[in-house]
């Protein structure tokens, strides 16, 4: 068991590449719409859970209103596509910029606060954004939602088939992963994790805490915005009912369930929790009750999440240390 772990940790990069390679060829063997849909949705949730894991897992800042940024991204893209017939790439850019801007505003206010004060502030932000979406009827059509959002278009090429949308999502997910990967494995990443472990100590070591916090917050808001923009064109219909606090909590549960600070865990956690409700559909009206009980049990059995206690870097280091010792 330990050998497997070490082998896995050492070749994590190759396993990751293999995994995404598999995802890339999978559509050629899959004929069912449902399978494609589930894979696409899983990837979307993994992307959003990545965003929360970056913020909550690596930086240690907890928000329960992050879905607001997804809403901002979704509405930006939907309005630009529907009313101004923009292509997808500039739409994505606009969605990223706008959600990043609101992320910046919120972070300037929120990050000065401590722990739960900040968390509740993000909750308030989410509610306010949702109410604006409901009530600003001239822009968002309010509760009527925006329907008939057309499929993504890149340089004149329309991606309307399920398979092309799948690949678009896969690309977005890989980009997100690369971004987060490169952040946490850089010097900035060390600073970020130092802040998570002990903010005061980090500050004493000369780390500009507020700067890093703001950057990470804005980045994770941007990822949510991008996911939202994708969502709008994927679903072709959005309304404010999707971007609620409880939806936000669901994504947080995915990130925590997978294991905070572990990207592989997030992939597993988000996928399992997306598919689990589908699998227990035969329970009919008892489904939600059982789902709640399952969540409690899983948390009690594995409080760190599935892979929260696994640190691949540490396993690698241990292994190499042992090797050196063995060689002497």
């Amino acid at each position: 068991m330990k050998m497997v772990k070490v082998f896995f940790a050492k070749n994590l990069k190759w396993f990751t590449i293999l995994f995404f390679g598999l995802l890339a060829v999978l559509p050629f063997f899959m004929t069912s719409n449902y399978g494609m849909r589930m894979l696409t949705v899983c990837m979307l949730y993994v992307m959003m859970a990545f965003s929360l894991n970056l913020l909550t897992g690596f930086l240690g800042v907890m928000t329960i209103g992050h879905i607001a940024f997804m809403g901002i991204g979704a509405y930006t893209a939907a309005i630009l596509v529907k009313n101004y017939h923009w292509e997808t790439l500039p739409c994505y850019l606009a969605a990223i910029l706008l959600s990043g801007f609101f992320g910046l505003l919120l972070s300037l206010a929120a990050l000065k606060l401590q722990g739960y004060y900040m968390t509740i502030l993000t909750l308030g932000f989410c509610e306010i954004v949702r109410l604006v979406e409901i009530n600003w009827e001239s822009l968002t059509r309010g509760a009527l939602g925006i329907s008939g959002i057309s499929a993504p278009v890149f340089f004149g090429i329309r991606l309307s088939s399920r398979r092309s949308i799948y690949y678009l999502m896969l690309v977005l997910l890989i980009l997100t992963l690369l971004l987060i990967w490169s952040i946490i494995n850089s010097k900035a990443g060390n600073a970020i994790m130092a802040i998570r472990e002990d903010e005061l100590a980090a500050r004493a070591m000369g780390i500009h805490v507020f700067k890093y916090k703001t950057i990470v917050f804005v980045l994770s808001a941007m990822i949510m915005g991008l996911a939202g923009a994708f969502y709008a064109q994927y679903m072709t219909y959005i309304d404010p009912g999707v971007f609620t606090v409880s939806a936000s909590l669901n994504i947080l549960i995915m990130a925590i369930f997978g294991g905070l600070g572990n990207l592989l865990g997030t992939i597993i956690g988000a996928s399992v929790l997306t598919i689990l409700p589908e699998m227990i559909r035969f329970l009919a009206e008892y489904r939600n009750l059982i789902y709640g009980i399952l969540i409690i049990i899983l948390m009690l059995v594995k409080p760190d999440g599935l892979l929260g206690s696994v640190n691949f870097k540490y396993i690698r280091q241990q292994a190499s240390v042992q090797k050196e010792n063995g060689g002497e």
Partner: peptide, 16 residues
Amino acid sequence: LVALTMVLSLMAGCGS
């Protein structure tokens, strides 16, 4: 358990 869930869900996805 987790592995089982994943396998099952994959089956649910493909088999439909």
